[in-house]
Each structure stands twice: as C-alpha cells, then as structure tokens.
C-alpha cells in the first residue's frame, strides 16, 4: 500500500514517532515540580487572562474544536477533489416534419429525458411549441413527448426553434432530433446559432434509416461529447461502417470500446468516444464523487494529517514543549 507516494512502513514510523512524542510529553507533563509561592492569586489571574486572550475565553475550546474540524474538512475536501457538477439540463427539439422517424425520435427523446436532470421538450413543425419547462417533472415531459404528432409541413424552422430554446435556458444542452437531410451548410447554420454555452447536437432520425442497430450507432456518435470527431455525416458513417464490418452485437462494455477505439485510430485517426449512456453515467459519477472518489490510502493520509494537527493542538494547549 502506498500513501501519497510514501510506503506504508514510512507512514507507520511517522505515526509511531508522533504518537510517542505525544505520550512522552503527556507523562512529562504529569511530573510537575511543586513550589510554594506567597500567593497564587496573580498566577491564577494571569492564566485566566491567557485563556481569554487565546480565543474568546470560555468559547475557546469549542472554537478550537470547530477550527480543527474545519481544517480536517478542508484537507479531506482537497484530497477528494470533488467536482460539483452542474445539473444536466437538456433541451430536446423534436422535428415533426414527415422526414423524421417520429417514433424513433420519441423513443430517443424519452431516453434522453430519463438520463438528464432537467429537460425542456420543444416540438418544431410549422410552428415551434414549448411543451415543458425545466421545472416540470419527468412524467410531464414523457406525457408531452407522447402527445407530439407529426406535422404536415415538409419544412421545419430549426433555427427558430434553437433560438427559442436558447432563450428558455442558455446553459442547457440542445439536442435536435430531426429527419431532415441537412447539407453541410445547413448544419453549420444550425450549429452556429448564437448565444449558447454548447453547440446544438443534431441527431439525424430519417424515416428511411436502416435498422435500429445503425440508428443507435449514429445517435451515439452524434451525441458524443467529443462531437468534433464526428461532426459530419461522413465520419459518423465511417464509424457505422466499422461497426457493420466487424459485426458487433454488443454496444457497450470494455471489449467493444477497446476494439472500436483501436480500429478507429488505425483507420482515420479518429478516436472512439463514449456513447451517450456512458457519458451520462460518468456525469452522475461526478456528482457522487464525494463518496465514490474516496480512496482508502488517501483517507489514511488524511487521518495521519488530522492526528498531526491534533497533536500540535494538544501540545499548544497544554504547553508541553
């Protein structure tokens, strides 16, 4: 076992020495010389004033304890390095034009709502309609997703929908579920819509898309956090080709990740990135990092530090040295 780079024997020796000093000091303190003085009146008053001077007199012990607890808290806090992740907020824009495979879009939207903390559901057809806001429950989001029906218009104004989504919450991630066959320029226009922390992600869900298997593959690639590696259709298709070529039957797990990653690097310099589920899983891990990131050796390191601090405090309090 290694403690922050130090071997266990070293930590044990340090702990033994520090405890030994403390115990020896304690016994030394017990051996006080007796001395008769004319009066202890002045000494008693001097000690009282000394206590008053330390930290607010009678409160000193409580405040010192609080100080120590705070110090320990900060030490553990810094060691655990918790990252307080912001809420995972998503704005789902569901394109209701006939080109969109609406059933797939709804299924996918439900999945995204399930994985996010807060979600806004917007449908865009002839008109843009905001179905739920960020404060609504998941159930209402699911209900509103179910209520979305296909529009008759062959064109949906995605840009307008994205703008409205950004007004609703500029910090939320915008995911567009659309079946429109957007060319590069159109995609760029949509993505470069101003005033948002994130570039919107477009997940193509055409009606004619071949099979659930590939649909998911494309969705994963496009929804990836490292979107820049799959920013166009060709790159996403490349991943799909690879998947088809090697006939993967399982989408998750270390084996799949490892193989796909090595193949991508070998073929085009692309790196496989985690699919949506994995990303969301990791973000929830971040939020729980207070408990999950606690490493045993780091905790021991913190305990040793705490004991050292306690020792300094006791030595200071009882003036042993």
């Amino acid at each position: 076992m290694i403690f922050n780079g130090f071997p266990i024997w070293f930590v044990i020796v340090i702990a033994a020495i520090s405890s030994g000093v403390l115990i020896a000091s304690h016994f030394l303190k017990m051996q006080q010389k007796s001395l008769i003085v004319p009066t202890t009146l002045f000494w008693r008053k001097a000690m009282e004033s000394s206590r008053r001077d330390v930290i607010f007199g009678k409160l000193s012990s409580i405040l010192t304890l609080l100080f120590l607890l705070t110090a320990v808290f900060f030490i553990l806090f810094s060691m655990l390095a918790p990252a307080i992740a912001p809420l995972d907020k998503k704005i789902l824009i569901i394109d209701t034009c006939p080109a969109t495979n609406l059933a797939e879009a709804k299924k996918y939207a439900r999945e995204l709502v399930q994985q996010s903390d807060r979600a806004i559901v917007i449908s865009v057809g002839q008109n843009t309609r905001i179905h739920t806001n960020l404060n609504d429950h998941r159930q209402s989001a699911f209900a509103s997703i179910d209520k979305i029906i296909a529009s008759e218009s062959s064109y949906s104004n995605l840009e307008q929908a994205i703008k409205e989504a950004k007004i609703a919450d500029p910090h939320a991630q915008i995911i567009v579920l659309s079946g429109q066959n957007l060319n590069s320029q159109e995609r760029l226009d949509v993505i470069s819509c101003p005033a948002s922390d994130y570039a919107p992600k477009i997940i193509p869900l055409q009606v004619h898309f071949p099979g659930e298997f590939q649909l998911q593959a494309k969705a994963y690639c496009m929804a990836d956090e490292r979107f820049e590696y799959c920013e166009n259709q060709n790159q996403a298709d490349l991943v799909l080709d690879l998947i088809a070529e090697h006939q993967f039957t399982q989408w998750q797990g270390p084996e799949f990740v490892e193989k796909l990653s090595s193949m991508l690097e070998g073929r085009s310099g692309l790196k496989y990135r985690r699919p949506v589920q994995e990303i969301n899983k990791n973000s929830s891990q971040k939020r729980l990092s207070f408990s999950l990131n606690l490493k045993f050796d780091k905790a021991l390191y913190g305990i040793v530090l705490f004991l050292l601090l306690l020792e300094i405090y006791l030595i200071k309090k009882h003036k042993l040295v």
């Binding site: 030394l28 303190k29 051996q31 006080q32 010389k33 007796s34 001395l35 008769i36 003085v37 004319p38 009066t39 202890t40 009146l41 000494w43 008693r44 000690m47 003036k319």
Partner: peptide
C-alpha cells in the same frame, strides 16, 4: 511546568 502551592490557603495551581 510547576505546581504552585499558595502559602496562605494551601491551594495548588498547576501552571
């Protein structure tokens, strides 16, 4: 470290 003994009232004070 001393244990002071008051000459007048025999009280002790560790100090």
């Amino acid at each position: 470290n001393l244990k002071l003994l008051d000459s007048q009232n025999d009280k002790t004070l560790p100090c």
